[in-house]
Amino acid sequence: MNTRHLNTVWVVLMLATLATLGIGEFGARFGLAGPLAMAALLAICFVKGRLVVLDFMGLRGVKFFWRGLLLGWLLLVSALIAIAYWIALK
């Protein structure tokens, strides 16, 4: 993993964090609230987690089994959060 790539990943992660905070602070003002905000937050969370797993943890070039375990965890947790959120809406 070269330094420029790691730096790019860091910048993307910073921007994504800013987006998460932005949704929390101003989302409702721009119609980004409720299930839409939840979906956006989970999508950002997955993008960030995936970059950490693939590029910081260094699993990008490793057999799918290992990437699958960690990304699978991320997907499973996101799905459970989404299901619980959906239940709360009812």
């Binding site: 993993m1 070269n2 420029r4 790539h5 790019t8 990943v9 993307v12 993008v47 995936r50 970059l51 590029d55 943890m57 260094g58 699993l59 990008r60 070039g61 490793v62 057999k63 799918f64 290992w66």
Partner: peptide, 18 residues
């Protein structure tokens, strides 16, 4: 979001780093 690295492994490593 996918940031492609500039190195490509033709054969994936069998075990993770560490």
């Amino acid at each position: 979001m996918d940031i492609a690295p500039d190195t490509h492994h033709t054969v994936p490593a069998s075990a993770p780093p560490g």
